[in-house]
Design a protein around this nucleic acid. Structure first.
Lengths: 180, 180
DNA sequence: CATATCATGTAACCGGTTACATGATTCC
DNA sequence: GGAATCATGTAACCGGTTACATGATATG
């Protein structure tokens, strides 16, 4: 799924500007998709060219003018078709795990620091997800709630694993160092 | 961490050809890093140019000749330095979760199919990891075993979550459909 | 006065994927 | 005879990131 398609998805939940779409990516989608302005704005421009969205210039008082995008019928049917053809892939690109695999090349305090950092990042993500779930309020919450619950379960399992095994790893690495 | 750096990492565990490095990516690293021939071969060529690896042409009987790469001292210290500077990021790009968020735009059988497919993929990954753990045998297993255990715990939590909540989601979606 | 938020866009760059090109050997 | 495995590489392409460019208003 590319950024263009996901923009259609965001707009299927309601009209929005590029700036607002970015915030949805940052909040609701942050734990499974990343996109910046540099990909969102060009995507919206191309979707407009293709007739999948329409754009209205909205003047605001005490705020810069914004461009609010609205999904067309063609846009919605294109999005539905894209979903039907999408394979449910789930890809992880983790420097955290790379560092773990080569933990023996780091000093034990560095390993301790990276585990601690990972726990912090997990907590940030977890409170993010809990905030989303408490807000709720979406028109179609069932799938989104399932996804959020899934993400939470996975993050929590990672956190538990680190907390339960960190000392074992650290002690092993320290003993190895001494014996060298 | 880019492909070049990870190739140094693989070679720090022993000499290997590009083809063999690809197999390490597919087996030991598959659940947190993906790389194809199209990125590995050019990476090895550039590492050779930079003097971080050296290459020997090995003629084989009953097999095509291969190029076996070996880490230099400069290569190892470069790899150590890269690890020390690497932030332990953990990025997920999941079409599975995108599909879940927009589950209300799919027919219930499609949602059922994507959950089933995800369970199949998780089982494939789990047996992969278990195979790695049973083989063991690596020179420096502590970090790698921790990483594999982490990946297994996370995958298992996802599997459990799907199995426990799939019927709830499916029933809710079916009821919504009837009432429309 | 500085920082944060709101607001939109472009252009260069880059890492990685896909497809193409080639060819021997082994297993079914 | 056809598929799978071993083995290496190139070139076009593509999606996305980063940095740049601009500017108003609000908050501390």
């Amino acid at each position: 799924v590319d950024v263009k398609t996901l923009c259609l998805g965001v707009l299927s939940m309601g009209d929005a500007s590029g700036y607002e779409i970015k915030k949805v990516f940052e909040n609701a989608f942050s734990h499974f998709y990343v996109a910046g302005f540099g990909s969102i704005y060009p995507a919206l421009a191309e979707l407009t060219r293709e007739g999948l969205v329409v754009c209205s210039d909205i003047e605001q008082e005490k705020r810069p003018a914004k461009k609010v995008y609205q999904l067309t019928e063609k846009g919605l049917s294109t999005f539905r078709a894209a979903l039907s053809e999408t394979y449910p892939s789930h890809k992880v690109r983790s420097d955290f795990m790379v560092l773990l695999v080569f933990a023996h090349l780091l000093k034990p305090p560095q390993v301790e620091a990276l585990l601690r950092q990972r726990l912090i990042d997990i907590d940030v993500n977890l409170s993010h997800i809990n905030a989303c779930l408490e807000r709720g309020g979406s028109v179609h919450p069932e799938g989104a709630r399932f996804a959020a619950g899934f993400a939470r379960a996975v993050l929590q399992a990672g956190k538990d694993y680190i907390e339960q095994h960190r000392d074992g790893l650290l002690h092993t690495l320290e003993n190895k160092e001494k014996s060298q």
